[in-house]
Nucleic acid binder design. Structure first.
Lengths: 194, 194
DNA sequence: TATTAAAATTGACCACGGTCACTTTTCTAG
DNA sequence: CTAGAAAAGTGACCGTGGTCAATTTTAATA
């Protein structure tokens, strides 16, 4: 049996990722074409698909890596002590995820991985996000009647909702910030019992 | 100026929709091909795109119509008197929306319409869903500290979340039903104040 | 009825993601 | 060093969504 993975392959993969990143930097995610990537990387088209299952897998890698890097910073912050500072911490990531409609669609598509083998960067970022949030929420001045993980799940659901609606014409351009404030006050600081 | 819209065009559109529905019935949404639709409808490919902006618009129409029909039935029900019966009312629609991964992706993509002109069947179903829900929630034994519309928005967000996670390998096959129960008890019947 | 402009339709064509049988390179075993 | 097997890479080819200049059909008007 020959060596499992060769240096050559790693270099090729790196070239592909570099080329893709360059295209995205210059023209955005939506304009990215596989043909352009392989041309810049100086490899054949087939090589691309030997390294990435499909174009979406490359997007997962590019976007997920960026989200993860961002989450690394977030994770070092102090647990927010109120809803406003929680939102302040969450907003940059949400803006990253919604800078292009196309990017948000990719994220939605990958937020629930279809199979165990397919858990990619974006899906695992979501999992980490819940961890970080749960940690924060457990330490903050929020409701105590439910599991922090459930609270975190809910915040995630409202983040998705606010991001989706930010593209929606019906809600004429209400900023995500104010939507989140409404949602999170009701979710994290309910004022009465049923 | 000639007549604004001709009978011929309406017939063609109907033929296209019929053909598409037949394909979906036989092979599911994922397998639907524009070429197959125009072949069955007996028209040229270009005609398809004169009637639908793109393949997604046809999907919007097919799926949205179905969702709307379902919502019509739901809307006639009595307001649920507890969380279990609320979930019971919501589940069939959620199962409809998740019968194929592809269908759910289409729904996600259309749940927030990109522009005023683009509010299609799926997006408007979401709007109606909030209306119906808000009505129910206002009459039910649920929290009274927030606007019913906000409550309904939240239920919608949790529906999306539960549907997305139902495809997710990390949450190994927890049924939507039990996820919804956890979410809605915490959202609609919070037991303490922050 | 003849004219004619807008509406409707056509199908050759293109763009782009993805496949696969084949070639080249790499590494290990003998 | 060599043989050979696995890994890596190649590029012609295909499927399918989408475009558009040209053609046909419709119906209002003179």
């Amino acid at each position: 049996m020959a060596k499992a993975i060769q240096q050559r392959a790693l270099k090729t993969r790196a070239k592909l990722l570099d080329a893709a990143q360059a295209v995205v930097f210059e023209q955005g995610f939506e304009a990215l074409r596989v043909e352009e990537v392989v041309k810049r990387a100086g490899v054949a088209k087939g090589t691309f698909f030997a390294h990435f299952k499909d174009k979406d897998a490359l997007m997962d890698q590019l976007i997920g890596t960026e989200m993860n890097r961002h989450l690394d910073q977030i994770a070092t912050l102090e647990p927010p002590k109120d809803i406003d500072s929680l939102i302040e911490a969450l907003l940059p990531g949400m803006q990253l995820a919604t800078r292009e409609r196309y990017v948000f669609d990719v994220i939605l598509r990958h937020s629930g991985a279809a199979a165990n083998a397919e858990i990619g960067p974006i899906a695992s970022t979501f999992a980490r996000n819940v961890e970080v949030l749960a940690n924060w929420l457990a330490r903050g001045p929020f409701r105590k009647d439910i599991d922090p993980v459930l609270m975190a799940d809910g915040v995630g659901a409202f983040q998705i909702q606010a991001m989706a609606l930010s593209f929606c014409a019906i809600h004429n351009g209400e900023p995500m910030e104010s939507m989140m404030k409404r949602y999170l006050e009701a979710w994290l600081l309910p004022k009465s019992e049923g």
